[in-house]
Design a protein around this nucleic acid. Structure first.
Lengths: 333, 333
DNA sequence: TCTTTACATGAAAACGATTACATTAAAATA
DNA sequence: TATTTTAATGTAATCGTTTTCATGTAAAGA
């Protein structure tokens, strides 16, 4: 079905070099020749073998997307954004995750050593020493999507978790006149979780509200974790007015608890989340939360990476911080 | 960082041919030699360049996953399943979608002609003539994930939409003693939608219930579509007892309508869905629906494809039909 | 001991593209 | 017209691996 450059060259009556140049729009090829080659290529359905091309140029237009897990809407939207940009730029997206069996570090090394991908987008909740070491002696362009800017030897895109959480809490205190705000955090080895908690703490402090340590529970970003933590919080004699869950999944857990304890949101207690996942708008009442533009995050990462792949400078890295947006629902009285 | 086969051969004092054979576990290599090569390979961090290998063997261990859209939980779980199987078998997953700008057919052709992927998993709501034509003169192993078994020139995995819907309706009629069942279908160019509707119709018929055509509305698989359709249904003077939404997203739309019309589920009317997406369990009340094992679907597809890639016979294709499971929630009185 | 067979390894071609360098033809200059 | 410059194309090497075929060596059989 597909022919090779040699066959095409034969048909055109030119050398393979000329065909190659014509296909790559080399200015040294005469217009007439180029036209002839291109028309023959179309007619004979010639497509340069990408493998052969990558092999000889030592450049791959495949982007490796390394994720901690292939699950949930957030990662899906990232993939979507990456795919979109890849398509426009004629790049390809290869996905890979840490499978329980293999660490993120191993996934990166695999991509790097096999010569398949020309660049890596790394999503990780935190950059540990192992990853840091790998990235340091890494020759492949890499963009890190992370909760915190804690590695500056490559480009990075991060979510403004801190300000997102800060604004949310500030809104509760100043617009809603709420003082008793509890927090179910994410796992604290996760940078996003840490930054969100920091925003929460500083917003309280800046508004002169004393932090109640009992009202801070470390969760796990799952619905069940949110359910467990909120049950604990709501059974305290000194019950908080609003629970700030560090992500929407845990906020959903709070809704489940409300149903089980026969409490009404927002009258009996309020809930706010973080992420603004798709279903949050369909919760009853609609969840007040912080929107993360994950699709844009993916697009931004891919754009930055492709730029870097075409111009691999070893210094001056970009560090983009993507702002979040406060979404006001009906989950707070 | 990475060395080539030549350098490794030199270090080992053998030819590149021997190294290649040792790396590929060729039985003709003496154990001592193999051990030596392998230990040097490990020490020197040698990894065969996959691009070069694929190039020469004309076999790629990259699987191209073509999807109509990169959105939602269903596709995410498929990707997850595929990725899992790929990892175990040392294959790689490349994703691609039709971008509004490009059709599914174009995405397939792109994968096929560029020589990157060694096999394709094609997810499509329906196989049209264009796709059929492409698949027919396709030399690349392909597995189709589809709602209906309507192309038998390649392996296929399909969901048992018909029986899933049939069982669900049968359950409503016989266990719940409900007779007035409306249906919001998916778009009818989608095979899944058609099969589910067929299950609904036949279940009614087999139970001697006359179909009320006013109670069948074509939806679009979105929450908003479900909301619109259910509003129409619930404002009829002859109102159905239960609405069967062809997917959970539209069922969620029914929940939104209930809130807006101030009706209670399941007392005022009931809702059942299809898919069993993650959030369905957290709806209030939990949605009665039909579970689709999407993760398994992805695994099954990848397994079948890899089998076919290793043994590309031109006949005897596998056609796997994956059963669904009835999930009983509290959304029906 | 000599021949045959089996085993282990090496030499070299091949895959399909790109690209440095060489070459030819045409245009510009003297 | 003779020479230089420029433009367009061709020749051939190259990338890293696999694999066919050839070769050498050791074991087996006579």
């Amino acid at each position: 079905m597909t022919i090779t450059i040699k066959e095409l060259a034969l048909k055109c009556g030119v050398s393979t070099a000329t065909v190659s140049r014509a296909m790559n729009d080399d200015p040294s090829v005469k217009k007439a020749t180029k036209d002839k080659v291109l028309s023959f290529a179309k007619k004979l359905n010639y497509n340069p073998n990408l493998l052969a091309r990558s092999f000889v140029t030592k450049k791959s237009n495949i982007i490796g997307l390394v994720m901690p897990d292939i699950f949930g809407e957030f990662f899906m939207e990232i993939i979507h954004g990456v795919d979109e940009v890849c398509y426009i730029n004629k790049y390809y997206t290869m996905v890979s995750s840490s499978h329980g069996k293999r660490s993120t570090a191993e996934a990166i090394v695999d991509f790097m050593s096999k010569g398949i991908v020309g660049g890596i987008i790394l999503m990780t909740p935190a950059i540990n020493d192992e990853i840091r070491k790998i990235l340091r002696l890494n020759e492949l362009p890499t963009v890190v999507i992370s909760g915190k800017r804690d590695f500056d030897r490559c480009d990075s895109i991060s979510i403004d978790n801190y300000n997102g959480a800060y604004s949310l809490i500030d809104y509760l205190i100043n617009s809603k006149k709420i003082k008793k705000i509890a927090h179910i955090s994410g796992p604290l080895e996760n940078n996003d979780a840490v930054q969100r908690q920091r925003g929460y703490l500083n917003a309280l402090e800046d508004n002169g509200i004393k932090v109640n340590k009992n009202w801070i529970i470390e969760g796990d970003f799952t619905t069940f974790g949110g359910q467990a933590a909120s049950t604990k919080l709501l059974k305290m004699q000194d019950r908080p007015e609003v629970i700030f869950a560090a992500n929407d999944m845990m906020a959903i857990g709070c809704y489940v608890t409300a149903r089980e304890l026969n409490l009404k949101i927002p009258t009996d207690f309020g809930v706010v989340g973080f992420d603004d996942i798709f279903v949050s708008q369909f919760l009853n009442p609609r969840l007040t939360t912080t929107h993360i533009p994950s699709y844009d995050l993916g697009k931004e990462a891919a754009t930055t990476l492709i730029k870097r792949m075409n111009k691999p400078e070893k210094n001056k890295f970009e560090h983009i911080i993507v702002p979040t947006e406060l979404i006001i629902g009906g989950s707070v009285k």
